[in-house]
């Protein structure tokens, strides 16, 4: 026995207190979306579905949801392509500057969002402005894709590393062409990592607000931008509560799915 029983119990208590702290705010959000009190007095005075019905009729929130989905899908597709290419290059080849690639790919999420956002804003206004292209959904997708690449990269890279090259070599020895080997051997083995990476990249894009603020311009509103704009308006509070509750509940689904598809992928955001 390396640790005393008191120490083990102490750690166990800390673990559960930590988990409680993590989940109390999430539970509060969901509970409050059913709170009958208009001012969200605590503890709740009764149960109501009124806010949920009001939220489903809020065109601002529903439109913003659509924008967020378009941005998320666009960024995920780009991140899938670029992240997978970089992962293959790093895992299957030896070349000068190979270690720099992982660093470079992670840089957009390592640097503060405000730096990435302002840097992209400078480029967009200097390069796209003169040719008459303004900020909009396109620039949001470019911004989101930049920091989503690392998610796909980490997932695919980890899978390729565990996979090794023996199966691919066997396929080549048995006469498979490069394409056949990719189509029938490599791709099926990394499919789970691709799906997991895509889900997590989408979730990251769906939730992003800082870079979005700098790249969206005045016309485009993603869901986080919409929530932030309505957060301080008392008459919108019930709808904001419901949207926050929806986002809390919905977020658990992709994480659970990706957990099933690629065991260690939930940690890939870190």
């Amino acid at each position: 026995m390396e640790f005393s029983p008191a120490f083990r119990i102490g750690l166990r208590i800390c673990m559960w207190i930590g988990l409680a702290l993590l989940y109390i705010p999430l539970i509060l959000i969901v509970v409050n979306s059913f709170n009958a009190s208009k001012t969200f007095a605590f503890p709740p005075t009764g149960f109501t579905l009124e806010w949920w019905i009001a939220a489903s009729r809020s065109t601002g929130a529903v439109n913003a949801l659509g924008t967020s989905i378009v941005a998320g899908v666009g960024a995920t597709v780009i991140a899938l392509l670029l992240g997978t290419m970089a992962a293959f290059a790093v895992q299957r080849y030896r070349f000068f500057g190979r270690n720099t690639i992982s660093f470079l790919v992670a840089l957009p999420i390592t640097l503060p969002g405000i730096v990435t956002g302002l840097a992209l804003f400078s480029t967009f206004s200097a390069v796209l402005g003169p040719v008459g292209v303004g900020l909009g959904i396109g620039t949001v997708i470019v911004g989101h894709a930049t920091f989503c690449i690392v998610i796909v990269f980490n997932n695919v890279q980890a899978r390729l590393r565990r996979l090794g090259t023996s199966l691919e070599e066997a396929s080549a020895d048995l006469g498979g062409t490069g394409w056949q080997t990719f189509r029938y051997v490599t791709f099926p083995s990394i499919r789970g990592a691709l799906v997991a990476g895509a889900l997590l990249a989408f979730a990251l894009s769906f939730d992003e607000i800082v870079v979005t603020t700098f790249t969206a311009g005045a016309e485009v509103q993603t869901l986080p931008i919409w929530i932030f704009g309505n957060l301080f308006r008392p008459n919108q509070a019930p709808v904001v509560n419901v949207v926050a509750a929806v986002l809390t509940i919905v977020a658990i689904v992709p994480v659970w799915l990706s957990q099933r598809l690629a065991g260690d992928s939930v940690t890939s955001r870190v």
């Binding site: 673990m15 930590g18 988990l19 993590l22 989940y23 705010p25 999430l26 509060l28 959000i29 409050n32 969200f40 605590f42 997590l200 979730a203 939730d207 607000i209 986080p224 929530i227 932030f228 957060l231 904001v240 949207v243 926050a244 509750a245 986002l247 809390t248 977020a251 658990i252 992709p254 994480v255 659970w256 957990q259 939930v266 940690t267 955001r269």
Partner: peptide, 24 residues
Amino acid sequence: FFLVAVTTPLWASYLAKAYAWRVL
């Protein structure tokens, strides 16, 4: 179980979580 329990809140909306603390 604990690993999933600790990582899941990471994916809940940032704004929803900050808003929860505003309510708290």
